[in-house]
Structure formats: structure tokens, C-alpha cells
């Protein structure tokens, strides 16, 4: 019965973190963390896609929530965003898997 302990309700989605028991004893890292160039660029791309009507913030959130729980907690904040942006653009056909694979291969070639 959920009325007893909502912090342990098994029906909860993993991103829905309010009051979740297993995090209650975790300390908060209150130190400042500077954003990296990568962080800023991902944030900027999200804004550009939103302003152009290509992907809404609601879609970004859906894609983040679709990340399997272990990876959701392992990935850094903007790494989740990249995963979600890729998920959404592929689903919508804005970018095809072939195009993305080719660009990945080209990037690996250039980085060699």
C-alpha cells in the first residue's frame, strides 16, 4: 500500500526522486562545479533545437527519463542530455542512424 512509505513505492519511475529513501542519507556536494566547454555547447544546442521547433524541452525530459536507471545515475548531467537529444532526433527522423554512424566513423578516423 503506497500510503505507508512513498519513498519506497515500486511503481515510481526512477527519475521521480522526491523523498526516495535510498538517497536520504547521501550528502550533497555543495561545492561549485564549473561548467565545461562540452556542457555549455550541449546546453546551447538544446536551446537552438527548441527555438527552431525541432525538439521541445518535454521531449528532452522524456528521453532523459528513458535512460535505464543504472546509466541515468552513472552519466553526468549533460551526458544524459546528449543521449536524449540523439534519441529524439533519431526517433523523429531529423537525423538517421546511417548519418550518425557515418559521422561517428569520420570522427574516429579524424581522431586517429
Amino acid at each position: 500500500m503506497s500510503q505507508s512509505e512513498p519513498g519506497e513505492d515500486p511503481r515510481r519511475a526512477h527519475h521521480d526522486l522526491g523523498g526516495v529513501t535510498k538517497f536520504l542519507c547521501e550528502t550533497v556536494d555543495t561545492a561549485p562545479h564549473a561548467l565545461t566547454r562540452f556542457d555549455r555547447r550541449v546546453d546551447a544546442l538544446r536551446q537552438i533545437l527548441g527555438a527552431a521547433g525541432i525538439m521541445r524541452v518535454d521531449e528532452l525530459r522524456r528521453g532523459i527519463e528513458a535512460i535505464p536507471v543504472a546509466e541515468y545515475h552513472r552519466l553526468a548531467y549533460y551526458q544524459r542530455w546528449v543521449r536524449s537529444i540523439a534519441d529524439n532526433l533519431l526517433r523523429k527522423g531529423v537525423v538517421s542512424a546511417e548519418e550518425l554512424r557515418a559521422a561517428l566513423a569520420a570522427g574516429r578516423e579524424a581522431g586517429r
Partner: peptide, 18 residues
């Protein structure tokens, strides 16, 4: 598996395509 590509690499590829 494609989505599981390391995020920095995936982002660079996405940007290139876009």
C-alpha cells in the same frame, strides 16, 4: 547501442550531421 556511444563522441557526430 548507438545511444550508448560515449556522449562526447555522440555529441560531436550529432553536431556534424546537423
Amino acid at each position: 547501442a548507438l545511444l550508448a556511444t560515449p556522449a562526447e563522441e555522440l555529441f560531436a557526430a550529432l553536431l556534424a550531421v546537423l
